[in-house]
Design a protein around this nucleic acid. Sequence first.
DNA 1: CTCTGTGCAAAGCGTTTGCAAACGA
DNA 2: TCGTTTGCAAACGCTTTGCACAGAG
Lengths: 140, 140
Amino acid sequence: MTDYATLLKDSGLKATFQRMNILESIEHQGHMSIDAIYEKVVKIHPSLSLATVYKNIILMVENTVLVEVPIIGKKAKYELLKDEHIHLVCTQCGEVEDKPHNSSADAIFNAMTQSENFILGKQQINLYGVCSHCNIAIAS
Amino acid sequence: MTDYATLLKDSGLKATFQRMNILESIEHQGHMSIDAIYEKVVKIHPSLSLATVYKNIILMVENTVLVEVPIIGKKAKYELLKDEHIHLVCTQCGEVEDKPHNSSADAIFNAMTQSENFILGKQQINLYGVCSHCNIAIAS
DNA sequence: CTCTGTGCAAAGCGTTTGCAAACGA
DNA sequence: TCGTTTGCAAACGCTTTGCACAGAG
């Protein structure tokens, strides 16, 4: 359980109820689209505006509190800033699962980019497939 | 130089001038957004409609002639279907460069997903950073 | 000749913006 | 209190759709 108020203030943003609820929803769910965030938070704050969600997501991405996760064929999802990790994206149910970033793979990508004089910043690795849960559902 | 007419027909699509020009532009440039494709092809086919570009991109993605390349903070680009590879995305100039997919990394991801009972399909690896060209420009 | 594909214009939606009121620090 | 944030509603821009005509096979 993160202290969202401190996280926001440290990023230079005021700790409003809207923002804290947005962060709490995202951390609880893991990865959420704008729509899903709105649907979830509006239940707690019925007066919430979709425009407020948009403004805050943009602001929190700019301040590196949140990170955009683009997904092939779908709208982007957002997650809290975390250590580098890999996304397992289920093409059946749409869920995204985090896996710790493998240090061997990391070394490979570092070597690969260095030999190109490419200054490596953020890595974004999405593995698409069918998760174990949907896998069982299909077999039946 | 690919035979676009055959590629299209083998995918069950008619080989129109619009489609062949779209494919030629994308292959020449490597990775293009919808807008960029339209801007490029409309110079050759002044009567081209943006709606036609949209319809064809959607159709060619469905028929796996093209692949969507989602990019953080930008609109998606499209590329021809190729062997698995890695994208080096320059955050300065926006260019995307392909690198052959490393078999060691591939083995790591296969092992990782198998242990999760995750049936791995397509891998999508984007490495964001500054390309060698922009790198030099910044230093000056 | 037949069916698919194109171009146009309108409709549809997701996203952004401007502003007055509300709120956090 | 003061600057920031919110909510509303309008504006915007990208994307999709319907339809008559043109074009590929």
